[in-house]
Design a protein around this nucleic acid. Structure first.
Lengths: 215, 215
DNA sequence: GAGAAAGTGCCACTGAGTGGCATAAGCCTA
DNA sequence: TAGGCTTATGCCACTCAGTGGCACTTTCTC
């Protein structure tokens, strides 16, 4: 009768997850309250009652902790990208857009939006966090390329990479606009749709010199 | 007759530049030869005969030194962006592309291509360098937006930001492809042109499932 | 219950990055 | 060209992120 009902993950794994959760929640809170640089790892580890060594076994660094919500998103995105069946005969762009929206709908953890918001606000004020996030996205791009090449007949890498770059740029700008407002979960989705539409509008925008405003 | 011929910059400034040059040249060399992480700042400062304190007054960090060639590029780009007159009635995309190409042609320092190459190779092997570079480009995007808003009648930010994002993505992929080959200066220009053309090709690419290769 | 395997804590250490202050070098004016 | 002013540099001590090593505890497996 060692029945832990149906909970699959072994105890060890659950403990690890609990530590991770505690670090994440406390970390985001402390960084937000006291400032990112001003909060030392020792303080955080003290608050969570965990050794610094354990922190580094869980996260690659302070920045990595803050960007964890983003990791969730793009990890799920890659999983979806590998399984979603394209409907009709979409272009690569349409397909990517669809998968991203599906991914957003799939993030059901209740306070994910709140955490992304905290994460974003921290990133906006701390270059090292933003830099770390941008690098992560770059690696995601390459991973996405690999998945796409596996599934579809795409002779060249360059155009595909650029399409994914556009997707990620769209998400970034959407997230930025979203974080400036009320920041609800549905809101993020809408901002992505809007930003997506703004891509051709931006590229094809006519260049009129500043008229009446001319200083 | 204090004529230092026509050399405008005062001695102090020239000395500073010389130190910077020495740090840059020696830094790139040491990082390349011995590895980025394996080379300590103390070693570098020792080799250049400069105190660590001086290093940090010249560069924001090790990564910043490696990305200096990139800074040159985008700084010049912003300058050009502020003055180049659009010919005819180009779209924003066409204009940005033109200014980038002009900028590339304007980088005449003899070993700039070589340094970009070293810089790129280092960045590919060292996440922190790549991250730093990506962050720098992000800031450049915002700076470019400000310049464009000043000069042209662009009612919304979002489309413009996305257009610049595309430009930077194009440059990154071009640089990547360029660094994998012989890496001449003209080559970089050609790769930019090619990558630029690959943007619509990528977005509109049809999605055919992997055919004969299907495992 | 015993042994294997995995996770954790503790400790000492490296090295990046910063602040403060004294000194030296270039600059400017009379 | 001597003096004071400004600015860059060197030096020193310090904080803190991140790592390696090893002993210890917990969980898993049989």
């Amino acid at each position: 009768m060692s029945t832990t009902s149906d909970a699959r993950p072994p105890l060890r794994e659950r403990k690890k997850q609990r530590t991770r959760e505690a670090l994440l929640a406390t970390g985001l809170r402390l960084f937000t309250e006291r400032g990112f640089a001003a909060t030392t790892l020792d303080e955080l580890c003290d608050a969570v009652e965990v050794s610094k060594r354990t922190f580094f076994r869980t996260f690659a660094g302070k920045e990595d902790l803050v960007n964890a919500p983003l990791h969730d998103l793009w990890t799920l995105f890659l999983r979806e990208l590998a399984v979603v069946e394209p409907e009709g005969e979409p272009t690569l762009a349409e397909f990517l857009r669809g998968v991203l929206l599906t991914t957003l709908d799939g993030l059901t953890e209740p306070d994910w939006p709140h955490r992304v918001l905290l994460s974003r606000r921290l990133a906006e004020r701390n270059p090292s966090i933003e830099a770390d996030g941008l690098y992560f996205c770059d690696r995601t791009t390459r991973a996405a390329l690999a998945v796409l090449r596996e599934r579809f007949d795409l002779p060249e890498d360059l155009p595909v990479l650029l399409a994914i770059d556009v997707l990620i740029a769209v998400f970034h700008r959407a997230q930025e606009a979203w974080a400036a407002g009320p920041a609800t979960r549905e809101g993020l989705r809408e901002h992505v749709v809007a930003a997506w539409g703004a891509v051709p509008a931006g590229l094809d925008a006519p260049l009129r010199p500043t008229g009446p405003t001319g200083r």
